[in-house]
Structures are given as structure tokens and as C-alpha cells.
Design a protein around this nucleic acid. Structure first.
Lengths: 306, 306
DNA sequence: CATAATCTTTGACTTTAGTCAAGGATTCGC
DNA sequence: GCGAATCCTTGACTAAAGTCAAAGATTATG
């Protein structure tokens, strides 16, 4: 029916299988879901209540649900009239409104949840325990890969808000994990960052990696970090190879990096990514391993995803 | 958040994973899909055009899409006015109307298809070839298990339309596969069928199996069949065990069956299901193997899915 | 501190989606 | 061949979903 293989190099089998699944899934599960969750309530309101969850600003809801401001305003008002949510002014910015569920709203959310659980249970009840395990496994793999596929890695200014947010997240996490702690002042100052890549999952920054250029020959990778929510997807590796490509494009011939003794997974990733351990090249008090890897000149190999 | 494990015996991990996936998938893919496929057209019309495909009766469309008759009638009329479909009277039954796409409609369908392909390709492009393979595999397993979970097996009168349709499908297929052919008159007449199970996938009969009772001691399984579209799901086994349970409930102590030399897969399934080959117990000209299996009395073991 | 930008509300719409019931045209079942 | 059932159409609605623009209240910015 549809073309066997596009110019993109994506095989037609994959496209066909994914499309068939998509059709099947949205038709069967999506429909059920909408029908049961909404129950006596218009779907829009049910979804809105769900997204409000334990509380959210209208602005957030507007972008998350992609709704018109006027439409949202009215729906929130409707939920408020039904006694399901309470709307307050944001304490710091009084242009913003915050919506949070009342006890009645929470009860309704719990009921929504119960029904969704029932739905899932009903589905699984038709399978043997072995099959349930297989389904869970397959579903987890699917989700992981779909998420990974949706993440884009882009170069970003080192002083941009997304970059700062990621670096702050990085520092905060290291401060937790390092016995000696980690201060924001331990970060490389923006002006010494030669390039910075940020990974975006649906416009949300979920990881970063910086490149410094101590000299023309050598590049140094620093602050490679992936947000907790996006771990286990293979994103660290993607950021790493992305940084290597940038370094190669800029004419560097070798890339080096260090990592803390505590971060065993990181060290393992570097080793399996072609890095070899070398003697200390600086006196970074947080470093426990130093690695380097020769770069193949830019232009070799296929163009990567950007 | 949600209960760890319901009374149903379905573990909470499975429920949670499935729900999370459902949420993620419908939000991310479903939304995209609707948005792209519809384009300038209301979703309802786009979906209708899609379901019309190369042609379909309004009655079929109505049940497939679950629409109100009046609503459907008007939407079809709208598509007709836009020059996308043509409606004709069914040649055999002039109550029925057939809708088929005009060249313009076909062009629009092709465009829909192209966009859906693009969407899937765009998704897959973010993955390595290995990952694409993993995704395709995981997605296939998921679909297979979700389908299987949705199939119900019910006892049905041997003369009911569903039963007749299945038996006709069975006969037609055997006629194709047996070198000596198979006539509808080779089927067991309805009055000699003691019980008949039909498997339903969303109200469509996709498999059957009959039970005869030559004597109080012995039950005989016949006409076990699964529709092509529903093969590879493990449905044959489910019908088989269902029939065995019915036989046990009726007090039979042994169940027997035969199968054609050509149907190697069937023989393999019987063997792995606890059947042992025995000498011919009748002179069925189509039989090549004869099997039997002792039954454990009813009431033993957990109650099964009905 | 004026001006621009942001966030929300409100009024006035339109479009989509869907329901219900009456009735005409056929076909089925006895 | 007659009544029941089936399939479709039409009229008359309702509710949900969504759009657009104007305007009020704040907050950011040069």
C-alpha cells in the first residue's frame, strides 16, 4: 500500500508496523479511555481536571493542553462552579492564576484513576501471567524508544535559560552525590564554554553537555548530564557523540574529560565509547578518572541527526 | 498512587506500566496523528474517508465507526458534495448504499497516507537502525498481546449466523489446503454438535471449535479453526482448552480428535497440549492423525476466563 | 516611568459532533 | 402476500469544542 522505503533510509517494514500499531492502539485503547474517564463529564473538562492534578498555573495548562486562552478560562470557571477546583492568584506574579483541586476535585480524580486502573486490569485479565509480563516488557521498550526518538539535541548559548537550568540541575545532583559536595561556583563560567548542547524532550530541556577548548588541538567535554526523568534512554551517549562531532568539526584532534570516582556508570559509558584512561591533566578536586579519545576528522562518516 | 495490586490478581506493575504507556502514546502520537491526517478537514470526515478506503457500504461504516445513522448519512452526503466519494445502490440489496472514493477522493486518501508515512518516518529517523528494529519488534508484540487480550470465547448455538460463518470459513480453507478438497457437506450437521465455541474479536467472529459427544465417556473436538487475520495470537490453544473445559464440565472423561496429514502446525499444537496419538477411531477420509487426551474432572483448578 | 509584553477574562461567534424520532423504500420470514 | 425487520434519509435539536478580538490588570524593560 504505502511506499516500501522512503528516501530517508527508513525501511518500509518499520513504517508499516508502526502505523498499523498506531491505528490499532488509538482506535481501541484511546476510544475506551476517553469513554470511561469522562463518564458524565465532557472530555475537555475531564482532561483539564486530570492535568490540573495537584495544582498548576493556567498558563502551564494552556501550553500543555494546547488550548485557547478564552476557552481554558471558561472551562476552569466551569470546574470551579462545580466545586472541583479552586483558583487563586499566583503569590509572586499576580497576572498568573493557579488552579488546584478541592477535596471534591481530588475525590473525582481518584475516581478517574480507579476507572483507568480497572480498564487496564480488565485488559490484562484476558492474558496469562507470562503474557502480562511480555506485554509490560514490550510496552516499556516501545515507550523508551519513542521517547528517545522524540528527543532532539541542539546547540544553545551557554547563558541561555535552558542551559542555565540544566547546569543548575547538574550542580544540584552532584552536590547530592559527591561526598565532598558540589557548589554552583565549581561550574565552568559561560564565557569559557566553547559550545553547549542541550537535549530537548518536547521543548523541555532534559540534558546537556559542554565543550571547552583549552587549545586548538584539544577539546574538553564537561558537565555532561541527563535529567533523572530522561535516564535509561541512551541520551548520555547521544550527547557525548554530539559533542565529539562538534569538536571534530572545529578541528580538534583529541577530546578529553574527567569524571568523579563515584560516577561508575559514567566511566563505563566513556570506556565503551572509545575513551581510554590517562593520567590526570589537571587538579580538578572532584575528578577521579581522566579519559581521552582521538577524534576522526570531520566530514568522515554519515551526517548525523542534529 | 494507584493500588499496587487489585483483587483481580493482576499485579500493579503491569497496570501502572500499561497506563503510563497509554497516556504517553495517546498524548504524543494520537494527537499528532489527528492533527496531521485531518489537516483542513474535520476529523470525522477525514476518518470516514479513510474508512471508506476503496469502497464500503454505509452499514459497514456505521458499525465500524460506531456512528449514528443520521450523522453518518449527512457526513457521507458532505463528502459527496465535495466530490470525494460517490454513493451507489447495492446491486443485490437496494436498501444498502455503497460509498466509494472518486479520483479526487483517492488523491486525498493518498495524501493522507503520505502524511501518515511521513509522521512515522520522522519518528523513526531519530533512531539507529538497531533501535528501529527493537521498536518494530516491541510494537508487534504489544499489538499481538493487546489483540489477544481483547478476544473473548463464548458458547454459541451451532445454527447461529456466526457459527455458520466460521464453519463456512473453515470448510473453504480446508478445501484450499487439502489436496482432495473439502465440501461443506463434510461438516458435522448442527444437530450433532453438542457445543460450539466462537472467538470474538470486537464482535467479529474470528474462530471456532465444536464439540461432539459420541458417548457419555468420550467427547470429540471438531472443526477447530482460527481466521487468517487472527492467527499467531495463540487463539487456537485458547479454543482448545475452552472445549476441553466444556467437555469436562459435561462429565466426559476423555477427549479425542483427528487432523489432516497436511496440518502439521495443528498436530504440533495438540501434542504440546497433552494429546497423544492413537490408532484411527473412525474412517474420516480427511484424517491423518488421531489423538486423545484424558480429562481432569471439572471443578479442579482455578476458574478460567469464559 | 512610559511603553511593551504577558496573562487572563469576557462577549460574540462558528463549527463539529452527536442524538432522537418519524418516515420512506426494500427485503426477510413465515 | 403480509407484517416485521432492516437500511437509509430528513428534520429538529443540543452540547461540546474551538476561535477571535477587545480590554483590564500586572509585570518586564529600556
Amino acid at each position: 500500500m504505502s511506499g516500501a522505503s522512503g528516501v530517508s533510509g527508513v525501511s518500509g517494514v518499520h513504517v508499516t508496523t508502526l502505523r498499523r500499531f498506531n491505528r490499532y492502539f488509538t482506535r481501541r485503547i484511546g476510544v475506551l479511555d476517553d469513554h470511561y474517564l469522562g463518564q458524565d463529564r465532557p472530555l475537555g473538562e475531564a482532561r483539564l481536571l486530570y492535568e490540573i492534578g495537584t495544582g498548576a498555573s493556567l498558563r502551564e495548562l494552556r501550553t500543555r493542553l494546547g488550548l485557547d486562552a478564552g476557552y481554558l478560562s471558561r472551562m476552569v470557571r466551569a470546574l470551579e462552579k462545580q466545586g472541583l477546583v479552586r483558583v487563586t492568584v499566583h503569590p509572586a506574579d499576580s497576572r498568573l492564576r493557579l488552579a488546584e483541586p478541592t477535596p471534591a476535585g481530588r475525590a473525582e480524580l481518584a475516581e478517574q484513576n480507579r476507572r483507568a486502573d480497572d480498564l487496564a486490569e480488565g485488559l490484562l485479565r484476558g492474558l496469562t501471567e507470562t503474557q502480562r509480563g511480555q506485554l509490560t516488557e514490550a510496552v516499556a521498550v516501545t515507550e523508551r524508544l519513542l521517547r528517545l526518538a522524540a528527543i532532539t539535541v541542539r546547540p544553545v548559548g551557554a547563558a541561555s535559560p535552558d542551559a542555565r537550568a540544566c547546569l543548575a540541575g547538574y550542580a544540584a545532583e552532584l552536590d547530592e552525590r559527591f561526598p565532598e559536595g558540589y557548589a554552583a561556583t565549581d561550574l565552568v563560567p559561560p564565557e569559557r564554554i566553547a559550545a553547549l548542547l542541550v537535549a530537548y524532550e518536547e521543548e523541555r530541556a532534559v540534558g546537556c553537555g559542554a565543550l571547552c577548548a583549552p587549545d586548538a588541538e584539544t577539546a574538553e567535554i564537561r558537565h555532561l548530564w541527563v535529567h533523572r526523568d530522561a535516564r535509561g534512554l541512551g541520551l548520555g551517549r547521544r550527547l557525548l557523540t554530539g559533542l565529539e562531532r562538534v569538536a571534530a568539526e572545529r578541528g580538534h584532534r583529541v577530546v578529553r574529560l574527567d569524571t568523579h570516582k563515584v560516577l561508575k556508570e559514567a566511566a563505563a559509558m566513556y570506556r565503551s565509547g572509545g575513551y581510554t584512561e590517562i593520567p590526570a591533566y589537571d587538579d580538578n578536586p572532584h575528578a577521579g578518572y581522566w579519559f581521552e579519545k582521538p577524534l576522526t576528522p570531520a566530514g568522515t562518516g554519515p551526517p548525523g541527526t542534529h
